[in-house]
Amino acid sequence: MDHSGISVLFEGTNFQRLLGGLWVTVRIAAVALIIGLILGIMLGVLRTFKNRPLRVILRLYLEFFRIVPTVVLLFLFYYILPRQMNFNLPGDQLATLVFALWVAAEMSDIVRGALISVPQHQKESGKAIGLNRYQLYRYVLIPQAISLEIPATINLATRVIKTTSLLMLISVMDVINIGQQIIEANNHSHPTGVFWVYGLIFLFYFLIDYPLSWWAKRLEKKRLERANG
């Protein structure tokens, strides 16, 4: 086992460093998700209103963040905006901001979709008993929309976590970046280290993402059971 690549993982502080990188990854994803979800729900509700200019603006916002690849967004915010507009943030805060804006855009579409798929008669019944717009959303539409949107939201969360692997491009010391440092530092003494380091990173991502997607599946199943009796 002397020259087996697996020893690379446990040499010196390598393992702690990988865990530290994972923490950076998780922290950025978590903060971005929290901010993005809150903002996204507000934007999603606004998108169901009949105000045309508002809907056009929000639609443009959604399409911009959905169409432009995340790599390009990161580059744009990290390298190009600072030069043009004197807008300078450290890499990890900037990454959180970009991801939050992206999550908000995607989330607004999920929320809008869920809100308009609540059966029309529910809305009409609400109006019939004299609820105003706020009450209608608060007591009728949003509670019913939540169960519709949760699985899609969790899927969005897993996508965000996976996409954090792009952060190495803007000098954020995430788990992939640290993995590459370790691989390069040990490349000559342990050529098979690549396999083990990436294997461990795979395991990390899997351990975070799999429970989430399992949870999403379970919620979806429960919802169907409830809906169909």
Partner: peptide, 25 residues
């Protein structure tokens, strides 16, 4: 109410962007 929600969210978005600008300035 509609207006209030609209104004609040627009401000929230702007704040996120401006928070960064403020620092750099």
């Amino acid at each position: 109410l509609t207006r209030l929600i609209a104004v609040v969210s627009v401000f929230a978005t702007l704040l996120l962007v401006l928070a960064g600008c403020g620092n750099s300035k």
